[in-house]
């Protein structure tokens, strides 16, 4: 557990007045408050730190304890015992702690060990909705192709969710009520899951349409024939017309990606032919090509 320099976090010195603390905190809170920085984990971390710093430095009792024992916080318990022996209950509470959807569990180990993790709130007991949790699920393209179930562990709890086919890279879905517990009887927060769908080495996806480049040997390109291609739905046989040109595109309707939450609807698969010129020709093959050239 590392010592946390609350003065440094707020950009203050030890001689800072209560007003200095309030002003510094307010300025930083406006910069890093989660409501003003959606989907910004760095801002969230910064906000938790400055919130914690303010929690301590804006409370005269906590600040005194911190100033006295800061770096030797391990002795804080002894300090507490002495305080109890004096039988003086301070009963004071600080003001000005911001919620930002934050729960007590967001405080550092250092804070928890010194102050027990309790914090003050705005005014009297207010019911607050719990913190929203965010998590990320990484999927291969083939995983996103079919509806499937997956178990997630979020803050120690296992949640089994159904991932509908067709989920998009970067798409965020909300699982209501699976966030942090509400404060003072408030409702639970929500869980936001961001999907990260990896690119396939051969098949590219844009929305519900898929794009695949298929190598074609020169003989099939010239004479036509039948090839078998690998799609996300298995192997598909494809007839190739004779005298096909390099870069020719063929659209296979309904062989693309499933539409999100539209069962039975699929995009298209666009196949682009890439004609491969043979290499390492034998003398006989070279001769045959020569014959072809001279046959015009």
């Amino acid at each position: 557990m590392n010592f946390v320099d609350y003065y440094k976090i707020l950009g203050l010195t030890k001689s800072a007045s209560a007003k200095d603390v309030k002003d510094a905190y307010r300025k930083l809170a406006r910069k890093y408050h989660p409501d003003l920085n959606p989907n910004n984990e760095d801002a969230k971390t910064n906000f938790q730190q400055i919130n914690e710093a303010n929690e301590v430095l804006s409370d005269p009792d906590k600040r005194k304890k911190y100033d006295q024992y800061g770096k030797d916080w391990q002795h804080a318990d002894e300090f507490e015992k002495q305080q109890q022996q004096q039988s003086q209950s301070s009963g004071s509470r600080s003001g000005g702690g911001f919620s930002g959807g934050q729960s007590a569990g967001d405080f550092s180990d250092f804070f928890e060990s010194m102050f027990g993790g309790s914090r003050s709130g705005r005014g009297r007991q207010v019911k607050y909705r719990g913190e929203d949790y965010t998590t990320e699920i990484h999927l291969e393209l083939i995983d996103a192709y079919k509806t499937h179930k997956q178990t997630l562990t979020v803050n120690g709890n296992n949640i089994r969710i159904t991932i509908p086919a067709g989920v998009e890279n970067g798409q965020i879905i909300k699982i209501a009520g699976h966030g942090g517990p509400g404060a003072n009887g408030g409702p639970n927060g929500d869980l936001y899951i961001t999907f990260s769908v990896a690119n396939h080495p051969d098949i590219k996806r844009l929305g519900n349409n898929l794009y695949l480049t298929v190598d074609l040997d020169i003989y099939t390109a010239v004479l036509g024939g039948e090839i078998t291609i690998d799609t996300l739905d298995g192997k598909v046989k494809l007839k190739v017309k004779p005298e096909i040109q390099n870069g020719t595109k063929v659209k296979l309707k309904g062989k693309g990606f499933p539409a999100y939450k539209n069962e039975g609807q699929f995009g298209d698969l666009q196949v682009t032919y890439s004609i491969k010129i043979p290499t390492n020709l034998t003398e006989k093959q070279k001769k045959l090509f020569e014959e072809l050239r001279n046959s015009d």
Binding site: R26, A29, R30, H33, D35, L36, F98, G100, R122, R129
Partner: peptide, 29 residues
């Protein structure tokens, strides 16, 4: 609208942002 309303309350009461500021922030968000 509860989540949105709670956000406006935090901006107003905790960050001391006035109504015009909240409107601007909401638009920018």
């Amino acid at each position: 609208q509860l989540k949105q309303l709670e956000k406006f309350i935090r901006l107003y009461y905790e960050l001391d942002i006035n109504l015009e500021g909240i409107e601007t922030i909401n638009h920018l968000l």
